[in-house]
């Protein structure tokens, strides 16, 4: 089993609360994205709503499902801080790994965990959507968008959180929330823009996901220069 696989298993075992929160949030997102089906047709007539609520509202839940993936994978960041404080990262450095190898391991673990949750929540969401008669096209769009936004968000939050944890002088990971705050900033527009520009909602979300992914990749590739090896010492 490789480093990232063990890291993933360990993080789930150590931080079950985040895992439960993530699953809970994905169920909540699924209910929200299908809530319109329970509202009488005449109150949400697409023709009478200026922002095309029927089509745009489920897109908003993409952000919620992405957030659930984020919560689910936060356990990996907690593990990073734990490993830094008890000297595991120092030992890993001494075995020949460098800071980029270590960061990659945690990011990979985080993305894989997020993928598991997104697969679960999309199957769940699609099944309920089909049962309630939601358009298959809309459900498929939501699945694609959830993966795109969810994974890029998880990537950004993980890399910024572990970078802040490494760079801070206090050992307890107190700067981690900064990583979450910076990481979820790209998510805010996905809550508003699809309502303002319903016909371009998919393009907007995909663009935000693409920019987030590029920023995350750039951050990861800069790790060797931004974070010195000594920053991983306890």
């Amino acid at each position: 089993m490789s480093f990232w696989q063990v890291t993933m298993k360990r993080s789930v075992r150590l931080s079950r609360t985040y895992v439960i929160l993530g699953i809970g949030m994905s169920i909540y997102g699924t209910i929200l994205s299908n809530i319109l089906s329970f509202i009488p047709d005449d109150s949400v007539n697409p023709a009478s709503t200026p922002i095309g609520m029927m089509n745009s509202f489920p897109i908003l839940s993409v952000a919620l499902l992405s957030l659930s993936a984020l919560l689910f994978s936060l356990s990996v960041v907690m593990l990073f801080v734990y490993d830094k404080n008890n000297g595991v990262l120092e030992y890993l450095l001494s075995t020949g790994l460098d800071q980029l190898d270590i960061f990659k391991g945690y990011v990979k673990a985080s993305l894989t965990l997020a993928t598991y949750l997104l697969v679960f929540s999309n199957i769940f969401n699609t099944a309920i959507g089909i049962y309630l008669g939601t358009s298959l096209e809309l459900l498929m769009s939501m699945a694609v968008l959830t993966f795109a936004l969810g994974l890029s968000e998880v990537f950004l939050v993980t890399i910024t959180m572990i970078a802040f944890s490494s760079l801070q002088k206090t050992p307890m990971g107190a700067n981690q929330p900064l990583g979450v705050i910076i990481g979820i900033i790209p998510m805010f527009p996905t809550l508003i823009l699809p309502l303002l520009f319903p016909s371009n909602a998919i393009i907007i979300v995909i663009s935000i996901a693409a920019v987030t992914l590029l920023v995350s990749l750039a951050l990861l590739l800069s790790v060797s220069r931004l974070v010195l090896r000594e920053k991983l010492l306890p």
Binding site: R10, N86, E90, Y91, S94, P234
Partner: peptide, 13 residues
């Protein structure tokens, strides 16, 4: 090289 620090550096769980 093998490096043993003064910390145990093992996953406690």
């Amino acid at each position: 090289i093998a490096y043993l620090s003064h910390l145990n550096a093992l996953p406690e769980e």
